[in-house]
Computed example of a mutant assay.
Amino acid sequence: MSFYDLPAWKTSSFNGFKHKYLYIRSSDSSKPVILFLHGFPDGPLGFSATIPYFIHAGYGVLAPELLGYGDTSKPEEIQAYASKNICYILGALLKHENIEEKIIVLGHDFGSSLAARFVQFYPDLAKGLILASAGYSPPGKPFDPDVINAVLSPITGYENVGYIKFMSRPDAAQIIEDHFAAFVALGYAESQVWKERLCPTGAMEKTLKEDYICPMASWVTDDWKRDIAGFILHTGLEAPARWYQALVQGVHIPGEEGLNPNIGIPTLFLQTTEDAVMTGLFTPEGQAPYFSDFTSKPFKTGHWIFAEDPKGSATAILDWFKEKNF
């Protein structure tokens, strides 16, 4: 049975939007629900190989298609993608499903920053936080790719986030759709390829317009390539690209003013050491001062840790759960 054939998928309408999500209750009443928050462009599919380990261990699973993805609503207003609004929706989802016990929030890519913001907006709703690939940044700060590249490039030897300048352009979605095969190959290429073909300013657009098919990572199977391409095509690119526009335009900043930058619940950071985008951007040493209880676990994977090493990543999380008595 494929991930999207599971009978636990639901579609509900609340807060003015339609929402699709996977919800499986905890089979062990002593164990909490894990809220899985995805990034771009894979949606909950990026967790599909990892989620079964948590179900088998008795934990509940709540994995929404976030705003702009899959069959969830795709508002055109950029303000709808502000962190405060998305977190409010997630809180409403918990209430809609009558989830009253404190949850564990797990985020990857864009979902990592969202996970951190959720526990800051709603500190009484979560007992643990997991950040994967992308780490923690304090709330209310602007995101300027040029500034980040200028700081990191002398350290890494290349620009890490130049692609975000392209992704935040209004024409990016159409360019990707016009060169879709090249986009899928680039997105799931070996990390070394990203250093040349994705990360530097202008590289992503050039790669797409050349219709260059990058060598894909060794873990990518034909089934994965089919499933991820199908999900992205079903979603479309225009709405997911609004997450990048919201990031660069700083729509989050007003709503995040006044949030406590420190997080007082146990937090696990899964550091993807071969991730060309995140290298140097999120270090354990830079994040630890914001947390009262911080654990970092390095993984020798690229960006897509839960697809590349589902067993290893799940085992590390479950071991941490035991340590924290979750």
Rank of each mutant, 00 (worst) to 15 (best):
P41T: 12
N85Q: 15
G68S: 09
K74S: 10
G43H: 02
Y69N: 07
A57G: 08
I55C: 04
Y53H: 12
E77W: 05
S73L: 05
G58Y: 09
Y53Q: 03
E77K: 15
L66C: 08
C87M: 03
P44C: 07
Y88S: 14
S73F: 09
A92N: 11
N85E: 06
G58I: 14
L94S: 15
E76I: 14
Y59T: 07
Y59M: 11
K102Y: 05
A92L: 10
E65R: 12
A57T: 05
G70T: 04
N85P: 07
E100N: 15
N98V: 03
D71P: 07
Y53S: 12
I78L: 06
Y81E: 03
V61W: 00
P41E: 00
V61T: 08
P52W: 03
E100V: 10
G91D: 09
A49R: 12
A57H: 13
A80W: 02
P64C: 12
S83W: 03
E100C: 10
N85W: 01
I86T: 06
I78E: 14
D42C: 11
G43K: 01
V61C: 09
E76A: 11
S48V: 03
L90T: 01
K84C: 04
L45I: 09
L45A: 05
H56T: 14
L93P: 01
F54L: 03
I86K: 07
K95E: 13
I78M: 06
E76V: 15
L94V: 01
E97D: 04
L90P: 01
S48D: 09
P75S: 13
Y88F: 15
H96S: 14
Y59I: 09
T50I: 06
Y88K: 09
K74N: 08
F54Q: 05
L62C: 10
L62K: 00
S83K: 00
A49L: 10
S48Q: 10
L45R: 00
T50H: 08
G68T: 06
F47A: 04
Q79D: 10
L66T: 04
S73M: 07
S73R: 03
Y53I: 04
P41V: 11
H96I: 07
G70E: 02
A49P: 09
D42N: 13
E101Q: 14
K95L: 14
N98M: 15
L66I: 15
I55A: 15
E100G: 12
K74M: 15
E77H: 06
G70I: 05
H96R: 11
K74V: 06
K84M: 11
E101K: 14
F47K: 00
I99Q: 10
E101D: 13
S48M: 09
G91P: 09
L93V: 10
P75N: 04
P52S: 12
P75I: 05
H96W: 10
P75F: 11
D42Y: 02
H56D: 13
C87E: 11
I78N: 07
L45S: 00
L94R: 03
A80G: 05
P75G: 12
E97Y: 13
Q79C: 08
N98H: 06
L62W: 06
T72M: 07
K74I: 15
L90D: 00
K84F: 07
L90V: 13
T72G: 00
K95P: 04
F54V: 02
V61P: 00
I86W: 01
G70D: 11
I55R: 04
G60N: 05
S73V: 08
D42T: 13
